[in-house]
């Protein structure tokens, strides 16, 4: 190659690559870290109402996920990508769907399942078929059924968190609203949690027993809304999941038809967390908008089926896991509309 003639040119090689030469400033890492950031407010609220234990569990979960990611990538001779935040996100999400009172040993095991088996065996981020965090949870639920279904803590009065530090009083264990509803009936539920608008608001704000990150609907919705605003997710999946949960619960949830309580169905359990942060996982969900709506409705329907008729009080985790493998089928059905068909085709 000839040297540049001009004197004014510094001598160096120009980058030669394929078009386009400008790219948007969105990166995978940016997306992941933003989602993680959106999950921080609910976590802090959780620390506030359940105690530091939740923070420790989340930290253990994150650290073990990152560690497993590092080890897996080293072992499989792949580039280490722990800085892209995906393992951190998996760690946070997995911690969010386990009860606050479990041993810190659990998330370590869950991380192996979530990161190594459910993700890296498939080829790493982008190739997994099932949502790693939820697979980790399903594994923990199968392995430690008692801890995972009973280590719930009652939310403490806002200021008790400080006395927790002072006195080290153990938190009070309790049952989740959905479990009470399922196992002890609606009467007991009303006795424990009350009813009406104050119930909805306290549940929506997060003052209820539940998994570490699922209780505060408000903060989760705010986080989700921020992601929608940033265009990282679209409204399709959250709206269709929550909408179908509400509608199906309304139709089938009560005695007879149309007697269920749609608002309660949305604000209890992990519906909001699942709808905004789990079901919207890029890798395991469909890519087309129509497909996403169908996927969301499927998740909502399965959630309601499991909640009302199934063996578990909450069903959204399994519902998402069951819909995960269908996402490619759904994408196959709802391919994006081509700009125009071939010549001679219908215009």
């Amino acid at each position: 190659m000839q040297a540049p003639e001009s004197q004014s040119l510094p001598h160096r090689d120009w980058i030669v690559s394929v078009s386009p030469h400008v790219k948007s400033n969105e990166t995978v890492a940016k997306i992941m870290w933003t989602v993680v950031a959106c999950l921080m407010p609910p976590l802090f609220l959780s620390v506030f109402i359940f105690g530091v234990q939740t923070l420790i569990i989340t930290a253990v979960s994150v650290i073990s996920c990152v560690a497993v990611e590092y080890v897996s990538q080293k072992a499989l001779k792949r580039p280490v990508s722990i800085m892209d935040g995906s393992a951190v996100l998996t760690g946070v999400l997995m911690a969010f769907v386990i009860p606050p009172g479990v041993s810190i040993f659990l998330p370590v095991l869950g991380a192996v399942m979530a990161i190594y088996i459910a993700k890296h065996l498939f080829g790493g981020l982008g190739f997994n078929i099932f949502n790693p965090a939820l697979m980790g949870r399903a594994f923990l639920l199968a392995t430690f059924p008692v801890a995972m279904t009973s280590a719930w803590l009652a939310p403490v009065d806002g200021f008790a968190i400080f006395s927790y530090f002072a006195s080290g009083v153990d938190a009070v264990s309790t049952a989740t609203p959905l479990a009470v509803m399922k196992e002890q009936g609606m009467a007991k539920f009303v006795e424990m949690f009350g009813s009406g608008t104050s119930l909805y608001t306290s549940f929506f704000l997060g003052w209820r027993p539940g998994c570490i990150g699922e209780t505060s609907g408000l903060l989760l919705v705010l986080g989700g809304a921020f992601l929608i605003y940033k265009k990282y997710i679209t409204y399709h999946i959250p709206v269709s999941v929550l909408g179908s949960i509400a509608v199906f619960t309304w139709i089938f949830g009560g005695e007879g038809w149309f007697g269920g309580d749609p608002i309660l169905a949305v604000v209890t359990g992990g519906a909001i967390l699942g709808a905004f942060f789990m079901a919207t996982d890029y890798v395991t969900g469909p890519s087309t908008k129509t497909g996403q709506v169908v996927y969301g409705i499927g998740i909502g329907a399965l959630t309601v089926i499991i909640r009302l008729k199934g063996g578990y009080p909450e069903g959204i985790c399994y519902a998402i896991l069951l819909m995960n493998p269908l996402s490619s089928v759904i994408d196959g059905f709802f391919k994006p509309k081509r700009f125009a068909g071939p010549v001679g085709g219908a215009k």
Partner: peptide, 20 residues
């Protein structure tokens, strides 16, 4: 600071390695 020379637009143009 010049890093890349493109003939055409940044979206569809071609990066070149020579000024000739």
């Amino acid at each position: 600071e010049l890093a890349k020379i493109i003939m055409g637009g940044p979206m569809m143009g071609f990066a070149v390695s020579s000024l000739d």
